[in-house]
Design a protein around this nucleic acid. Structure first.
Lengths: 227, 227
DNA sequence: GCGAAAGCTGACCACATGGTCAAGAATCAG
DNA sequence: CTGATTCTTGACCATGTGGTCAGCTTTCGC
């Protein structure tokens, strides 16, 4: 029957792993570009350098392949969701937040676009994730932001809108890459551009939300116990 | 032959206008949700309450229908691109900029998503527009922003990144509506929510870019000749 | 009222789609 | 070496796709 349970990551022989990698990479590109419906297994197979039957053999179905890609992307996303506490320095947390999200757009643009395409289509596969895990995560962060505001460490802005601001601005450089390149007249954004943008966003967010003394972390955490 | 040149807007009889409206509205929804390839004329026809043949009769082809929708959206976009000059008050211009873009997301979410889907797919139909008209428009605005920075009316931020920030944050509430609703746990965003978000974004942008006294426009333009 | 133009639409076409399957080829554990 | 498992793939299928077309009805100017 040749069925394989996809529970583990490192399962299967070398051949399987190699082919699955090729398929997943190709599929991510094609799904990102054309959406779930618009993507065709034929095109994915061609970009992976395999016959269509082979794609079905490894992935089972178009739906399973798509879901697997989404899950992989959510894992990447979760990987950067380190917890924070009200004791942390707001400036540093926000800065790290923007930087890591920006790097996700940089290192996995296709995955970002895949995610965007899914949401754009009404999130038929991710609805539960959005209303569950992700919502909880946002709420927990929002609570910390509010605490900071209460302590006078930043302006009392709505934390959720702030998170959306950071998500949208960083995601923009992956999702709207074609627009960014067309308007700036470049072939690609350099590492330097990305660094510049990251600094710009960080600056606007921190200054715009009235975050206090961005470089006073060491003092703060040191004085915490003293007070 | 019953061919019609699409050059003018108000052409055709009442029947034609009514059916075209229904088709365009349905097509905008379907294209926005599934992308160009993923959308089917069958589904568009059903949502418009017409047989598929009728859609082809009015629109000629899937491609022409899609292009027409994009052009309509670009017209809406252009409609809010009133010119600005370095003499204007930065705070007021940026505020109006954010507000009008936010309203576009509000009044035409499907159109916004259609546009997003096109860009996400690499802008195969809009490349020329991006590299031409839109780029020029951005450049002209950027020049004004730089002038403001030179005059000390705002921080010397890169105007292009600032424009992208505004675009992405406002567009977000149309394109990622599913995510926003899922996370906030609402059925829809109210007018009040939108107003709140608009004020938040305006505040962060203006404060974050160090724009001087937002409400001092009259003075400024008055004192300009005196100095 | 009449003729022309516009509107309508089911039947149809070539082609692409996701998916199945059977039969052979390659690999690998013992 | 051998038997079993994994891998490979072309042929095939039902269904859906964008698009054409002929023939019909409706509308409208005169």
């Amino acid at each position: 029957m040749a069925k394989v349970d996809n529970t583990s990551e490192q399962e299967g022989g070398a051949i399987r792993r190699r082919n699955e990698r090729a398929i997943l990479a190709a599929a991510e590109r094609v799904f990102a570009r054309h959406g779930y419906r618009g993507a065709s297994l034929q095109e994915i197979a061609e970009q992976a350098g395999l016959p269509k039957s082979n794609v079905l053999y490894y992935m089972g179905s178009k739906r399973k392949l798509y879901v697997r890609l989404l899950e992989r992307m959510m894992e990447r996303w979760n990987a950067m969701l380190d917890d924070i506490s009200p004791e942390d320095d707001p400036a540093e947390v926000l800065s790290a937040f923007i930087r890591s999200k920006m790097q996700l757009s940089r290192t996995h643009p296709e995955g970002s676009r895949l995610f965007a395409s899914e949401i754009l289509g009404g999130a038929p596969f991710l609805q539960d994730y959005l209303k569950g895990e992700l919502r909880d995560w946002v709420e927990s962060r929002a609570a910390v932001f509010r605490e900071w505001a209460d302590r006078g460490l930043m302006d009392p802005v709505d934390p959720v809108w702030l998170i959306f601001l950071i998500w949208s601005t960083t995601q923009h450089y992956a999702d709207f890459e074609a627009q960014v390149l067309g308007i700036t007249g470049r072939d690609a954004l350099s590492d330097q551009d990305l660094e510049e943008i990251t600094e710009f966003l960080t600056r606007v967010v921190i200054k715009g939300c009235g975050v206090k003394h961005p470089a006073a972390r060491a003092e703060d955490s040191a004085t915490l116990t003293e007070r």
